[in-house]
Design a binder for these strands. Structure first.
Lengths: 145, 145
DNA sequence: TCTACATGCTACAGTAGCTGTAGCTTCAAG
DNA sequence: CTTGAAGCTACAGCTACTGTAGCATGTAGA
């Protein structure tokens, strides 16, 4: 087993930055590891596992608050997992909303770029579309988020 | 015409916050408007147009730096619009990359949520998937961004 | 004209999730 | 024993705003 990793070695394994690990510790996501006499952090497998969990959740779009909650639930394995499911469903709904919005943006951007005749700025469609108030209606409806 | 809007009236028209307008001025995106004797901002149509341009570009995903550049080009209408096209294409590429990534996340999240048997945390698929190192390969390939 | 009160002003702190820097200390190899 | 990489803390900075405090201004009604 790979006991007693330095923070640098752990960072390399998890493909994170050293500062990110310290940041997770500061935020209460990573438990405080053992220290050498000189004060340097030394990590065990439990830390590597937890960091992998955090990173994977982050990559899937879970906010740190949600990850904090999930990590708390991991330590109470006898509880029902309804809350876990809810958190994950929230993230999924968020991802789906982002996709919907981005697809509509993509459509408008594609039209814009396609119409560009590579002339002078004065006739540029891109500029015209951006300046045109009437296009705003496409998106202003959800600025409330 | 609607001359001499207060900042509040302009904000309402553009569906922005008052502070956002002041922030754009601070960032050099909005020109400094006239002031009353008492020091309050009073906006003319030119400001409303520029704010609409900025907001529309923001909604399409243009970063402020790109908008700053486009606004500079708007003031030089005789230049070729190649640069405009490039900026817009960059934003489009960015939006497309985000869509691709989010679609892959959606897939993994859907699998996760679908497999949840609503039992106890100990057997929860969501937790298991997040903890499983082997799933990391799906996404760690682009952490370089 | 006086008085409320909404709105405006500046300046700064906070948001998410890191990332980078300065200035110093520790560790491990040679 | 030295040297250089890597670690330490603390804090600033990033994007694009948003919120707050404490005060000034503008305007409508009495």
């Amino acid at each position: 087993m790979a006991q007693d990793l330095t923070i640098g070695a752990l960072a390399k394994r998890a493909a994170t930055k050293v500062q990110t690990i310290r940041f997770y510790e500061h935020e209460g996501l990573m438990p405080e590891p053992a220290r050498t006499e000189g004060g340097q952090r030394r990590y065990a497998k439990v830390h590597a596992d937890r960091l992998a969990f955090i990173r994977h959740a982050r990559e899937l779009g879970f906010p740190l608050d949600a990850i904090r909650e999930l990590l708390g639930l991991v330590d109470k394995p006898d509880q029902p997992c309804a809350r876990v499911d809810l958190v994950a469903s929230d993230v999924l709904a968020d991802v789906e909303a982002k996709i919907t919005r981005l697809e509509s943006l993509r459509g408008e951007l594609q039209r814009m770029v396609r119409q560009c005749r590579h002339g002078r700025v004065a006739e540029c469609r891109v500029i015209k579309v951006l300046a045109d108030h009437s296009h705003s209606h496409c998106l202003t409806s959800d600025h409330g988020h």
